[in-house]
Design a binder for these strands. Structure first.
Lengths: 256, 256
DNA sequence: CCATCTTTGTGCACGCGTTCACAAAGACAT
DNA sequence: ATGTCTTTGTGAACGCGTGCACAAAGATGG
């Protein structure tokens, strides 16, 4: 989403599909685990199983990066770790700022997964003056007033927004104006950004709602499949006590 | 992902595309905002802008749910809120358990977005005996030993995993065995689940790595576009001080 | 009642992503 | 050196999702 590139203009057309890019971190994680166990090589079948994807897909993904495998043997784990890291830009250091140090922001600051792969929490920023100076995860919180200076001083190009929904867009605008070109948004809002700025969003509520949709359908199907077979899961138990099936006649509001 | 349904077997083939389902919560959020402002109707164009999608896509999405619009006028906001809520299964109550009450788990428990839409945190579960009984977000933490009983007693079908990576799969197995059929996974691991169980994953590290990829490419393109135009953003500043371009000759490890 | 104007609903074409299936490539044993 | 066996890399077909563009539908004004 929000991958607003018009084309592959010049610079060499090594266009790696977006879907592939999204899987590279998955492969990298699996490979890192193998590396720690000192496994020298791995086949596409094994690695695909570890990453939870189809092996043909994995091979095609790697083919976009170049031919790094050896037929009859597989892939050299260490070499592949390096190649993927380089492709993802993880061989360099990425200073990151987190804006909005509430429950979620603090949890993110404490999250170990950040530092593990080239990402470094350069600063924590919050609008609450009472928070200023207070250390979270060993880093003192700074006030929003200094946002622009902080971005500039640290050469930050990746920002994480963990503010309430209402504050997200203004914060986003200021981050972008200060030079941030990639944003990870945890606030439940659609962010408007100029071309050239990438936004990825993480929304817990949306994920749950998608799960609820499938859950409801499972319950509906089980209920529709007659009461012959006894309900086994909690979903069936739930469906039994649900007042309204998934496709009942509209009970509440009706338009004019 | 992990939408392991073989087909639409029977029950009526009202197959709503997965991509559409993923957007429904987005529409619902925008519509709820309109509803709170007492806006009676909205056109596909306006709503699409608010949700950040193409208007044709929005209309097609709604067409899967039925014909709820009025040509020349638009959509009735209240009616649409109800229809989407019903389709997503949000007219009923979904008890949810959160397993793993560390930084992230606690933040999730405190997150207001849960309760807002039919989701209720039924229980918090952690493996640390020292946590047992301690209230988080007003809910006492219970020990992992009681996991099965808690699931059963509360009729839980949706579980949230916020444990360390190593604990995720065992916890997942126990949740599924106890009747949970939908899992939201925050642990950085691939979860193996039997057919019929849906898993959605949220991985902060992966999102950042995807951003880093695009960020690196932007920096590379800017650098390749000659030094004619002065570097404007922080990314360009960063690229200038980066030791290695995105496509330099392999410097470190090399395979045999 | 008719004409006009707005907005929906959708047929169609296009592009991306996935998967199968297989030929080419190389390791390894004899 | 040669044959066999494993595994990669990819051509090709298919299906899904997206967006254009337009006809149908209904509201609205005269």
């Amino acid at each position: 989403m929000a991958t607003g590139r018009t084309h592959r203009p010049a610079t060499r057309s090594r266009g790696i599909p977006e879907a592939t890019v999204a899987r590279l971190p998955l492969y990298l994680r699996a490979l890192t685990a193998l590396s720690e166990r000192s496994v020298p090589t791995v086949s596409s079948e094994e690695l695909a199983a570890a990453a939870g994807v189809n092996s043909a897909k994995l091979r095609k993904d790697f083919s976009y990066l170049g031919s790094y495998g050896t037929r009859g043997v597989g892939y050299d784990v260490e070499y592949l770790v390096y190649q993927i890291s380089r492709e993802l830009g993880l061989t360099q250091d990425w200073p990151v700022v987190i804006v909005g140090i509430g429950n979620l922001g603090a949890a993110l600051a404490n999250y170990g997964g950040f530092a593990s792969r080239g990402f470094r929490v350069a600063a924590l920023i919050d609008a609450d003056p009472a928070m200023a100076g207070k250390p979270v995860a060993g880093i003192p919180v700074q006030h929003t007033d200094d946002l622009e200076r902080i971005i500039q001083d640290n050469g930050v190009s990746i920002g994480v927004i963990a503010t309430p929904a209402g504050a997200a867009q203004p914060v986003c605008d200021r981050l972008v104006a200060a030079g941030v070109t990639s944003i990870l948004n945890f606030a439940p809002t659609v962010l408007n950004v100029p071309e050239g700025v990438d936004v990825r969003k993480v929304d817990l509520s949306i994920e749950l709602q998608i799960l609820a949709f499938h859950e409801q359908r499972k319950a509906g199907e089980e209920a529709a499949a007659d009461g012959a077979l006894p309900p086994a899961g909690a979903a069936a138990r739930k469906a039994a006590q649900a007042d309204q099936g998934p496709d009942g006649a509209a009970p509440a509001v009706m338009p004019a």
